[in-house]
Design a protein around this nucleic acid. Structure first.
Lengths: 241, 241
DNA sequence: CGCCAGGTTGATTTCGCTCAAGCAATGTGG
DNA sequence: CCACATTGCTTGAGCGAAATCAACCTGGCG
């Protein structure tokens, strides 16, 4: 009975894995009382770069891509957000416009929490503020690591690393210790994530396939030997490695 | 008379431009009572990547380079820190090891605040916690922007941009609306900041010099027309731009 | 003086981009 | 149901950009 009249619209484990787990049952109930959740279809925008922030979005289920556009309109997929992720907390706290767009990539259920509700929470629950700070610090560490990798690693290494990262959420065990993987995003998006053109990624994939590192068909991939992929990340970090 | 017995070891304007400006005079005084400050010479390490955090460092004057090493021992200059900057707040808050090394690049005066003192402050002054969060959010926005630029901009654009950034702190007005600039760091460090080899940077500089965009001798640079440099950033963001 | 780190230059190779074409799957309007 | 765009992906050819390897210069400094 976490909530009085309204049903709790998110499973508990999704909340427990998020920033929101520090809220008391009462706070959670009143939060979801005032929230408005809905389903999104792929292609829908949750919010757009440059728009004014009105609150934060919480992903209950699904997949959202966070993109930035450059001056020529090329979009770069900055990161993926999935269940238990909170979007837009940054521009909410800095009171500035969104720095990126959020586009739904897979059917999703997303809740929206308004600024008013959030400010109330921040005021009532100091632990919640700390939790958000921890989140910011974690994000900061991740982005800085990625910047370093983008600067120092070869394209091959970056792609191999992307595969290993995607494995965590979208991979399953295959045969003989290998893994199977369903790409959640298009080739173009993968390419932009590692900072290359789609054609180059295509060639990298073919090259790796010819070497037996990988076997790809459409969005389905098989990695027979994860060890070799891991080596790839460290070996080809730069050419002389 | 901000402090009782001990003298305030930092000028007020340096503190006012930093996170620490939210502290009360009393808190500041007691902070600097328990601090230990010292001068550093170029080449000295403030802390090293991987070491356990023992507190944060506050730069009163000077210049510090924040570096990361990759698997092959190549160092990448991630960012510069100068007066009013606080170093090591991240690993202090996450209680983890330093993610980067801090090396003194120009003679500096740096204060050290121990974890104990900081925890006391965080407990006594909630505004201080918020200030640190704002700092983390600002850093996050900066790094994400840089990652995007590194992925989408050409080397020329990245270098032109670096010049414009360095101008803010190390440039002075020249003649006819131009600017003069003293590079605070070596060519190798500049190269690593924009993710190229030193040789390539050398060539970029020569090329730009031949085009009259730039005139460099040692660590001294003259940019006759800042407008053209700004255009360079947007024009050569990618080849087709 | 010799040494060394920082910087430049040249020759060569490798890598990734551009431009262009083609292909398969999907959708759409007549 | 077919003709036709559209989208996502791949491939090829050629080019340009940056890395590599190597030599050499320069100014400080023991």
């Amino acid at each position: 009975m976490t909530s009085g009249g309204s049903q709790l619209v998110m499973p508990e484990d999704v909340i427990d894995a998020s920033e929101w787990h520090v809220l008391s049952p009462d706070q959670l109930a009143s939060l979801f009382d005032k929230t408005h959740c809905r389903y999104y279809e792929p292609g829908e925008m949750v919010f757009c770069e440059g728009d004014a922030n009105r609150g934060v979005h919480f992903i209950g289920v699904g997949l959202v891509g966070v993109r930035r556009e450059d001056a020529n309109g090329n979009s770069v997929l900055m990161r993926l957000a999935a269940e238990s992720d909170t979007l837009g907390y940054r521009s909410f706290l800095t009171n500035g416009p969104y720095q990126a767009s959020a586009e739904v990539l897979q059917p999703s259920k997303i809740c929206f929490f308004s600024k008013a509700v959030l400010h109330e929470l921040l005021h009532d629950n100091p632990e919640f503020g700390l939790e958000i700070m921890r989140r910011a610090l974690r994000d900061l560490a991740n982005v800085e690591r990625r910047l370093h990798q983008t600067i120092t690693w070869s394209v091959r290494a970056r792609f191999a690393h992307l595969l290993l990262v995607m494995r965590e959420r979208y991979g399953r065990a295959g045969e003989n210790g290998g893994i199977q993987l369903e790409f959640p995003i298009t080739r173009s998006d993968m390419a932009s994530m590692i900072g290359v053109r789609p054609e180059s990624l295509s060639r990298i994939i073919r090259q790796m396939s010819e070497e037996g590192l990988l076997s790809v068909s459409g969005r389905h991939a098989v990695v027979p030997d994860v060890e070799r992929l891991t080596e790839e990340v460290s070996l080809s970090s730069n050419h002389s490695g």
